[in-house]
Amino acid sequence: MASWREQAVARSVDPVRARAEKRVQRFLDAALELIAGESGKDFTVQEVVRKSGQSLRSFYQNFSGKHELLLALLEEAVYSTASRLRETVAEEPDALSRLRRFTVEYHRLCRPPTEARSQRSVEILGMADFAQQLLTDDPKEASRAFAPMFVLLEEILDEAAAEGSMRAGLDQRATAGAMLQAIMFNSFALAISGSSVRSDGEGGEQAEALWDLLAHGLTHHP
């Protein structure tokens, strides 16, 4: 099924597709600016229209409403994050190292910011509340939105299995889903355990602890 961005652009006829793409991007950029400001995710469609400099009619030609706009923003955030992670983990020499790097880096990217949010942090973190709500209310939509991240992690798991770095018989798809949930939940919910955020905001120690748990489990192995 096409992404919400693709669906929005596809509503326009082919000769004006390029202009439609620009209009969609202007709405997305306007929404991101509002999320980064005082409105947060509680912005209104009217605010997006006003900030984008476009018309309300144009908005509804591209999106059915605010929910669809939020879906497009979430997909953009996940796609850009997965692309950055793919480049980052490629620096590692083997699959197990790439798996550890994925865990630590994605954990870092998911951490709530300790300082004023930059545009980059908005891309990654601004949709956190919406993503959590979507996971509960509409798992199918959430699964589609997080597909780029899931595909990347499953690829790394397959490589690790081929290298013999993982025990045989694991369901890679289920493992990828469990790891993503663990990383995202742990990064946002450290307060549950009373853990403090490091002064640099990176959360490196917590990320390494999570990796150790994922890699070695809880029990002694014979």
Rank of each mutant, 00 (worst) to 15 (best):
S12A: 06
L85C: 05
S12I: 08
K66R: 06
S39M: 09
D94M: 05
Y79I: 04
S39C: 06
S64I: 09
K41S: 08
D94S: 05
L32S: 13
E75T: 07
A72D: 00
A20T: 01
L32N: 08
V48D: 03
R17F: 03
V78K: 11
Q46N: 11
E21I: 14
G65D: 07
V9W: 01
R100I: 12
T103S: 12
A95L: 05
F102H: 06
A72P: 01
E115D: 12
F102M: 13
Q61R: 06
R23P: 10
S55E: 11
P112V: 00
G40T: 01
F63V: 00
I35A: 01
K66N: 04
F27E: 01
E75M: 07
T44C: 13
S39E: 09
Q61E: 04
V78N: 10
L73D: 00
E105M: 15
R101W: 10
E47L: 08
R84C: 12
H67L: 04
S39I: 07
G40I: 01
N62F: 08
F59L: 00
A18E: 14
E33G: 15
D42S: 08
K41W: 05
L85H: 12
E47R: 09
Q46H: 11
R98C: 05
E105Y: 15
H107M: 07
R100K: 10
A8S: 09
I35Y: 02
V13M: 08
L28N: 05
R57H: 07
A95R: 00
R26H: 13
S64H: 10
A90V: 06
K41T: 10
R117V: 11
E75I: 07
S52T: 02
L71E: 03
D94A: 05
A72W: 00
A10T: 04
A82Y: 15
L71P: 04
